[in-house]
Amino acid sequence: MTITTVSSREFQQNANQAQKATRSGPVFITNRGKPAQVLLSIEEYQRITGQRRSIVAALSMPGLSEIELAPPRSRDLPRPADFS
């Protein structure tokens, strides 16, 4: 992992370069020489926050329609125990 540091002025002048730098690690943005913000890729952000996709996001994934799904019939599922 590579940590990149840019001043806020450099970030404003070339935000695209800072975004590309997040592919190899976090980008620290400084203000008057002190770290002020951190720019991360979305994958890294989700990894460190433990965020999971919502069911809506999971079901709208590209290529999902190509997955074959054969859920068991309801008569094949276990039934609750009858204690009467």
Rank of each mutant, 00 (worst) to 15 (best):
V27M: 12
V38N: 01
Q12P: 00
Q12I: 00
R75L: 11
S54D: 00
D82C: 04
N31M: 08
T49M: 07
T4M: 01
L39V: 01
Q17G: 09
K34A: 06
S41D: 03
T49F: 06
I48F: 09
I42F: 08
A36W: 02
E43K: 03
A18W: 09
P71Q: 09
P80L: 11
P35V: 01
M61S: 11
S24K: 15
Q17T: 13
R9C: 00
K20D: 15
P72C: 04
A18S: 14
T49E: 08
S7A: 03
Q37E: 01
E68W: 06
M1T: 03
S7E: 04
V38H: 00
Q13H: 07
T49A: 05
V6A: 07
S84I: 02
R47N: 05
L64K: 14
P71Y: 06
V56M: 03
A15H: 10
A81P: 02
K34R: 06
D76G: 14
I48N: 04
A70F: 15
P62E: 13
Q13C: 00
K20Q: 15
S41P: 00
R79Y: 06
A36V: 00
G63I: 03
V38E: 01
I55M: 07
L39H: 01
E10L: 02
R9P: 00
S8Q: 04
I42G: 05
P35L: 02
T30N: 13
G63F: 12
R32D: 13
N14V: 02
L64M: 13
I55V: 10
I67T: 08
S74T: 07
S24F: 14
D82T: 06
A81D: 06
P71E: 09
Q17K: 14
K34H: 05
T22E: 15
L59H: 05
G33F: 02
I48P: 04
V56A: 09
R75Y: 13
T4Y: 02
G50H: 07
I55F: 10
F28T: 12
G33Q: 05
A58V: 08
R52V: 08
Q17C: 08
I29Y: 14
V27F: 14
I67M: 15
R23P: 02
A81V: 06
K20C: 07
G33C: 04
F28Q: 11
R32W: 04
T5I: 04
N31D: 11
S24R: 15
P35K: 03
K34Y: 03
T2K: 14
A81Y: 11
V56Q: 11
R52Y: 11
G63A: 10
I3V: 12
Q13V: 00
L69T: 09
M1E: 05
